[in-house]
């Protein structure tokens, strides 16, 4: 059971949040010009890394804000959480060992 830092509210219990998968997948513009493969890539395909992963979280029992978090999928360490408009914090270079 994690503690997650909401960029607006601070540290909160995981049960106040929901996770919505990989972050930073912008919706394509001009979708009608896309091939089925290109569109399928956007709709269906996500990375599933063993290691650092940028994810979208929603503080749904809290401020109802969406934000991004950088989490290690093995250690579950949250390296950073940041607002949607914020620049991406760098991935630590220790390979995720903690």
């Amino acid at each position: 059971m994690f503690i997650i830092n909401c960029p607006y509210c601070g540290d909160r219990d995981q049960t106040e949040f929901s996770c919505h998968g990989e972050a930073h997948i912008p919706r394509p513009t001009e979708t009608k010009k896309m091939t089925d493969e290109e569109w399928g890539e956007y709709v269906f395909f996500r990375t599933n890394p063993k290691g650092y992963h940028r994810e979208r979280w929603l503080h749904d029992h809290g401020c109802r804000r969406w934000f991004n978090a950088l989490r290690h999928t093995v250690t579950d360490e949250f390296v950073a959480s940041y607002k949607i408009e914020d620049p991406r914090p760098p991935i630590p270079d220790n390979g995720g060992q903690s």
Binding site: P26, R27, L58, D60, R64, W66, I84, E85
Partner: peptide
């Protein structure tokens, strides 16, 4: 409600 907010906050802020 989540769907509307998701698009508004993440794609069309």
């Amino acid at each position: 409600m989540g769907w509307l907010e998701e698009w508004l906050q993440t794609e069309w802020p």
